[in-house]
Design a protein around this nucleic acid. Structure first.
Length: 652
RNA sequence: GGGCGUGUGGCCUAGCGGAUAGGGCGAGAGGUUCCUAACCUCUCGAUCACGGGUUCAAAUCCCGUCACGCCCGCCA
């Protein structure tokens, strides 16, 4: 990572996270300090700060500018943890070739002042920094803490809104990215010290919902096809689909009658009538219950389900409308009220009140967001890419209403499509999340059973164990497949690719956990119920379980750990808090997924080269400590792992 | 048409201004009397969509082109 970017990221919102989006936010970026100075998160950041300080000092005494220090992580084959390419930039100024500038800088640095910097070497124009024994020893000790990787509490609350799919039918995988990404973001922010609440914003007031409630009353069970599953969402979606196709195919008169009923229901909702609310709630609550059952399997859970109607019934939507009507940007167009957002580079006027006097989704969302601002310090919303225009209109309108929209960040993800095209709840096309999870578990179970025969360890696994492991492996694979990718990239769903259990996948990471647990169990460092190393897979990505019971790590044992694989593992472990911090700032949980793979690779190399249980006594403790550490890092990263993404209902 | 996003070996993906572009899948060759081989090692394979530009340095920044996706409702 370039120094400039890093530098900026420490003080401002990163370009991909809090502050990313559109010009709207960009304007304000410089005004948003992310926080005051805090203790550096982990040894790696401390080392980086020392390197910066050393460079800055050297440049300054050479009378060179210190704007961009060019700090980066060197390629793998370079035996250093940090490097700098400043010499390139200063060569012109100095009038000497870069390698010579590098040497001059290196000789200007007094290492005695630093705890973690051990040596600076030059390799052509690069300055390479290698860490001291204290760096490894302190990492060994710090990482021994039960909550290693968790950053200190920030006393800053964040509402993470995600999924928020229209409660009209079962969750399908076109939307499955939203709960997975959303939950990963929530976990990441939680790890980074924020006080996080997960919200599902329930559309129980829109036209589609009114239509749904109407259809539920208008059609008979006998008119409907059999449900796909015995569950409320699958049951009721049949009414929704039937209602939609009825309106498409009906003659004008029949359609007119139906539309009138739907319209009357919407008016009732707008007026805050209890009867209208109850008619809608009947279908909404039931469907939501079914959807929750699917989401919990991931697991994606919520602290709160926030209903749109809440902001109609409490009068806040009405109040928003009144305030907007009085704003200088408001104008009346054919009986409807709209905002002219040209000043925000949004060409489309934003209609906030229909000519019949009813509010729109976005109008209610304004009230919703003011409620968030009143109750939380920040708000993060995970949205499908189709929501971008809506999100920028929302933000502009919030600004007109006098809110500090720097507190709101929307993050977007692209669709998951099937090879044959998109998915739609309304049309009933697509693969349900439950079907995906069932298939994933079935395939995982096959894999587990296939491998039973070749197992060396003699431990009894009963059917319940197999089911548990299959569930963990299967669901972990689905979740990892989605979190590990940048959300902006479109995904075409293919069974074999999503359910690949080897290599860069959750099971790869889970397997490392199993290996570590196997060693710890053998060494008597785990509880009896963890004797079964396969059982360890269960906790894999996302459990709260940790390696309690492991002894505290003695930093003295670092002396015995001098094999490259041991050091490399420690170096990866040292970066964990920094990875969490960056992922939280940028809202990029996929970087934690990448990190877990790196730590797994480092552990596998260590595992290959360094026998633990058969090691000489003086080595054994140290190596066991490494196993424990890796376990702890895995825990923190495990919390991140699940996440998903799923768009707000559009074409449901 | 306008706006936004994406484009990295046959496929998937990391990197997003600096050291010969990392991984994985796939293909080929090996490795287990030893803490689980859901692992590891090696080989094959890339004009980083294309064309310009900025820079000592571009996959990375800028402009243009092409392809794909999304949006441009008094829908959500």
């Amino acid at each position: 990572m370039g120094c400039l970017r890093w530098f900026l990221s420490r003080f401002y919102c990163s370009p991909q996270g809090w502050a990313d989006r559109d010009r709207l936010t960009e304007r304000r970026r410089l005004d948003i300090p992310i926080r005051s100075a805090r203790k550096p998160p982990g040894m790696f950041v401390s080392l980086r700060e020392e390197a910066e300080d050393a460079l800055r000092g050297a440049l300054s005494s050479l009378s060179l500018p210190t704007t961009d220090l060019g700090i980066e992580e060197p390629p793998e084959d370079v035996p250093a943890v940090l490097a700098s390419s400043v010499a390139f930039r200063l060569a012109g100024e100095r009038g000497t070739p870069p390698p010579q500038v590098a040497s001059e800088i290196a000789s200007e640095i007094d290492l005695a002042e630093y705890d973690y910097l051990d040596a600076i070497s030059t390799q052509d124009p690069y300055l390479n920094f290698t860490p001291s024994e204290a760096y490894y020893a302190d990492t060994l000790e710090a990482a021994g803490a039960a909550d290693y990787g968790r950053l200190p509490a920030r006393e800053e609350s964040v509402a993470v809104e995600h999924t928020s799919a229209n409660p009209t039918g079962p969750v399908h995988i076109g939307r499955a990215r939203n709960p997975i990404v959303g939950d990963a973001i929530a976990r990441t922010l939680d790890l980074a010290g924020y006080d996080v609440a997960r919200h599902y914003y329930v559309n129980d007031a829109g036209r589609q919902i009114a239509l749904f409630a109407w259809a539920y009353e208008a059609f008979e069970e006998s008119d409907l096809p059999d449900p796909e599953r015995d569950r409320a969402d699958c049951d009721l979606v049949r009414y929704y689909r039937t209602g939609n196709s009825f309106l498409e195919d009906a003659d004008d008169e029949a359609r007119g009658e139906a539309e009138a009923e739907i319209e009357a229901l919407m008016q009732g909702l707008e007026a805050g009538e209890t009867e209208a609310y109850e008619r809608v709630s009947r279908v909404v609550d039931e469907v939501l219950g079914g959807m929750q059952a699917s989401l919990q399997r991931l697991p994606a859970t919520f602290e709160e389900f926030v209903k749109e109607t809440r902001f109609m019934r409490n009068g806040s939507t009405e109040a928003i409308v009144a305030r907007l009507e009085n704003s200088p940007y408001a104008e009346r167009e054919e009986g409807a009220w709209q905002l002219d957002l040209a000043e925000w580079d949004i060409e489309k006027p934003f209609v906030f009140l229909r000519s019949d006097g009813t509010s729109l989704y976005t109008t209610r969302d304004l009230a919703h967001h003011e409620w968030k601002f009143a109750n939380f310090d920040r708000a993060v919303t995970v949205l499908g890419e189709d929501q971008k225009l809506h999100a920028s209109q929302l933000e502009a309108a919030l600004e007109i209403l006098g809110n500090d929209t720097g507190r709101l960040t929307s993050t977007f993800y692209s669709w998951v499509d099937l090879p044959e095209g998109g998915m739609s709840t309304r049309e009933g096309t697509g693969v349900d999340l439950d079907d995906l999870l069932d298939e994933a578990i079935a395939r995982a179970r096959e894999e587990v059973e296939d491998r039973l025969g070749s197992r060396i360890r003699d431990d009894d696994l009963d059917d319940a164990d197999l089911s548990r492991i299959a569930r963990q492996v299967g669901i972990g694979a689905v979740r990892y497949d989605i979190v590990a990718k940048q959300p902006t990239k479109a995904i075409t769903f293919e069974w074999d690719r999503a359910l690949d259990f080897e290599a860069q996948s959750a099971p790869y990471v889970q397997y490392v956990h199993a290996r570590a647990c196997g060693i710890l169990a053998e060494a008597g460092r785990l509880d009896g119920n963890k004797r079964d190393p396969f059982a360890a897979l269960e906790s894999m990505p996302g459990s709260e379980e940790d390696s309690r019971g492991a002894p505290p790590v003695d930093p003295e044992t670092i002396d015995a750990l001098d094999i490259p694989e041991e050091r490399a593992l420690l170096e990866v472990i040292a970066r964990f808090p920094a990875v969490v911090e960056t992922a939280a700032e940028d809202l990029t949980p996929h970087t934690i997924a990448t990190y877990t793979r790196e730590i797994a690779e480092a552990f596998n190399a260590f595992y290959r080269e360094c026998p633990v249980l058969d090691a000489p006594e003086e080595l054994k403790e140290g190596r066991l400590a490494l196993v424990v550490l890796r376990e702890k890092s895995r825990n923190g990263s495990g919390r991140f792992a699940p996440s998903n993404g799923e768009p707000r209902a559009v074409s449901t």
